[in-house]
Design a protein around this nucleic acid. Structure first.
Lengths: 359, 359
DNA sequence: CTGAAAGCGCTTACAG
DNA sequence: CTGAAAGCGCTTACAG
């Protein structure tokens, strides 16, 4: 089966004198293929300056021995690792896991691995912590979901230490090759149109925390969606939440205690929307007939709860994949700006939590 | 401020002639501290064979320069990386994220990082994939949650390639230093006692898939808990699910269509328990008065849904932390078997989905 | 198109 | 207790 001349002197035809326990190295490949290690290195790194049959010969030996270059040694010489860091403070398990999956979708087969780095932006050593991580690991690149992606201190520091990054955010904050933009504003406008279309007029909103850019985008989009139908979102109909279940409950209680209560509530994310269900129940209101609820995210729970939650879906896994692809494209010399549609459009998923208001 | 003699000749007192952009290396520390790099290496690796004041001198320079040894170079020389791999096929985002958090709790400050490696045990290249990952990255260690932890092919292969691992499983499958055992059986027995205590007699169970060891442990524990009260779980009252929402719905439909339907259902996990809510609603049954439901896991959703779900809580984050600590203990020369309580005991959390049956 | 030398930043023997 | 030499498995200049 082997077409390569066996240089071993103490072993069978497919054993090239390698120590059995140890993995093959570039030196083994060079020796067996009868070339220098530099040439093997050229093949590994897809250098165009290798004669076709030299390349084939080397590739055959690589395949036969199942050789795979040591990322640590390669990284040491390259002054760069083969690790992608996902640096995040998003508290939603669903968001985190889906984004991880998306990043892994993109790097599969590339030899890159994903290192997860949750962090706390409010912590005193936040910047030192993230900087230490990026520098020590000499990250191949970093994927930054919100709200870390919105922190200019982080991106400035990463640039300073020479760590490539891609930001995921609801508004363009950077050059296209470093951005995956989700049009949250448009998604929120869809939510507004949906409620208006059902005939709602007294509409309320629970926003996210100020720290998140998406809070403003979703708020602004919702307002403009209502404005298209000539409906103004009153100040008394807007309560700030914190993207958590409990804050959703509290905000909804407040809204439902207003003298003229809303017939529909748009929550900045699903977690808070689920909280609205509880407040509605406590107030003796039937969802959707007394109160329509619309969320944002399409978390798994939205289709499990009853009535199922109308929401705006963000393709989180795709977003993770697109971000990692931009990181990869750079190293492949492609133009990362032209990889895929420049903007991720959320889609409204109408379920059972929204209906026309009672007359 | 610096008490170290400045050997630079072209810079100020705190600049030791280092290139500004580049991070300090072991050579810089050695030069500035006036010792050999080998001595610096001894300090880094906490060798006892260093004179106290030599150590202090070196540590002062390390601190002053904020030096942190390059994990790639160290790894290359050690023939081992500083990466912990979490290799898993658990589909629950909550489980995954909590376990990641637990592992990170344990490794914080140790210089280790967490590389996530989801996989598919049913895939043809599963073993090759996991092997390649462990070998290529020369993992410091692997954390294996169920059901990967229950695959002897995986643990055999990891042993063969010299990759330390810790398994997390509902039954002891390995030496104590390689195991975090969760007593799922006992947790399920608690669930049984809870339902018996409420007065239930016609009790049903939805099990997990055969592939998971926890399916058997939870099943067996539940049976034995009922047996204590002289209640036998009838065959017709047991339906197999798949740990998914949909399988929970389907299994509950089947159970609720029996001629004498159960007054209580214990589901092998929360995801399926939530499915039972839907089947109950479709059948026009009130939870908990027509039907009590008990789950397993304490997923976030269990306290959000209405009525809130009675369930058995597993401290997933602690389990991840304990597993990573065992990995760390080995390298610190401690006895990993004696780290913490040998067994994780799940606890019943009684909420609103369980009540005495209607007379 | 190919290779010999030096180096990435550490550690392991081996001396003393 | 400390250090000079060699090496981990790759790549970058530099030659040819």
């Amino acid at each position: 089966m082997s077409t390569i001349e066996d240089e071993g002197d103490d072993a069978g035809p497919t054993d090239h004198g390698l120590t059995p326990g140890r993995a093959a190295t570039i030196n083994d490949i060079a020796r067996i293929a009868g070339v220098s290690k530099k040439t093997v290195s050229r093949v590994i790194n897809q250098s165009p300056f290798v004669k076709a049959d030299t390349r084939e010969k080397v590739e055959a030996v690589i395949a036969e021995l199942g050789f795979s270059p040591d990322p640590q040694a390669r990284g040491l010489a390259f002054r760069r690792s083969f690790l992608i860091g996902m640096i995040y403070d998003n508290p939603s398990p669903n968001y985190v896991v889906n984004m991880q999956q998306g990043i892994l979708d993109a790097v599969r087969g590339s030899g890159l691995e994903l290192v997860v780095h949750p962090c706390d932006r409010t912590s005193d050593d936040f910047m030192a912590n993230v900087r230490g991580f990026a520098v020590r690991q000499k990250l191949f690149g970093a994927v930054l979901p919100p709200s870390v992606s919105e922190d200019e201190r982080v991106t400035g520091m990463l640039t300073e230490v020479g760590c490539p990054y891609v930001r995921i955010a609801s508004v363009s904050l950077d050059a296209p090759e470093r951005m995956v933009v989700t049009n949250d504003s448009r998604g929120a406008a869809e939510a507004a149109r949906h409620l208006v279309g059902l005939g709602h007029k007294r509409i309320a909103m629970i926003t996210g925390p100020d720290l998140f850019r998406s809070t403003h985008e979703r708020g602004e989009g919702f307002r403009s969606g209502l404005a298209e139908a000539g409906i103004t979102l009153e100040d008394a109909m807007v309560v700030r939440g914190a993207y958590t279940f409990d804050s959703g409950v509290a905000a909804a209680r407040e809204l439902l205690s207003r003298k003229t209560r809303p017939t529909a509530i748009f929550a900045g994310n699903d977690e808070m929307a689920i909280g609205v269900y509880q407040a509605a129940r406590d107030a003796g209101l039937d969802v959707p007939f007394d109160l329509s609820i619309v969320g944002f995210d399409d978390a798994p729970m939205s289709s499990r709860i009853w009535p199922t939650l109308t929401t705006v879906k963000l393709p989180i896994r795709d977003m993770g994949r697109m971000a990692a692809e931009k990181l990869l494209a750079r190293s492949r010399g492609l133009d990362p700006a032209k990889l895929e549609q420049p903007e991720v459009i959320p889609t409204l998923i109408a379920r059972d939590s929204s209906a026309p208001p009672r007359r």
